[in-house]
């Protein structure tokens, strides 16, 4: 797996373990996602979220998106999640504070989620998507990624930079103590 990251070549052995890896990562992801639903403790939720994000990163690895997986781990799990945990800590007198919800609410929520999932699944199943085995597959190496970012995705890339600046200003303003 890590060799893939380094060389960009998929070793034979990975193909054999792919089902296992898929099961593991998907399992972790889905399980901890639903644990977030069930959990009533905000810190635990953050913890489960970390597992979910990690699992998703694993799935990215599995899908030949190694760069993304790394970013997911660094930025999402490493940055955003820490931010969230900070948020949790700063906004509660007691970090293990519980805010209960009623059972019926949870049923409604899960019901709505399930309904949405069901509808999406129906749509997915009814849509013919031909999976490609195309020969002109793009090389997913870091060079291509960089060149794509500065090519077709130049504007979004720069806009994202500006956005981050604005966000920084906004967040700093909102969070600082001066009235």
């Amino acid at each position: 797996m890590f060799t893939t990251l380094a060389t960009g070549i998929k070793p034979e052995s990975l193909d054999q373990v792919a089902p296992f890896l898929y099961l593991i990562f998907a399992g972790i992801t889905v399980f901890s996602a639903w644990m977030i639903v069930i959990s009533q403790n905000i810190v635990r939720m953050a913890m489960y979220l970390l597992f979910t994000l990690g699992g998703v990163a694993g799935l990215y690895f599995l899908m030949n998106a190694e760069f993304l997986a790394a970013i997911q781990l660094i930025v999402y799990a490493g940055g955003t999640l820490i931010l969230i945990v900070f948020g949790v800590m700063l906004t509660s007198k007691n970090p293990f504070m519980r805010l209960h919800t009623y059972l019926w609410e949870r049923f409604v929520a899960v019901g709505l989620g399930a309904l949405l999932a069901m509808l999406t699944t129906i749509a997915l199943v009814n849509t013919p998507i031909k999976q490609s085995a195309s020969d002109q597959m793009v090389n997913h190496d870091i060079h291509t990624i960089g060149s794509t970012l500065l090519g077709p995705f130049l504007v979004p890339f720069e806009v994202a930079a500006v956005l981050l600046l604005v966000v920084m200003i906004g967040a700093a303003f909102m969070a600082r103590s001066r009235a």
Partner: peptide
């Protein structure tokens, strides 16, 4: 937000 999702569904 729930109404949002209800509307969406």
């Amino acid at each position: 937000v729930s109404l949002l999702f209800v509307g969406l569904v």
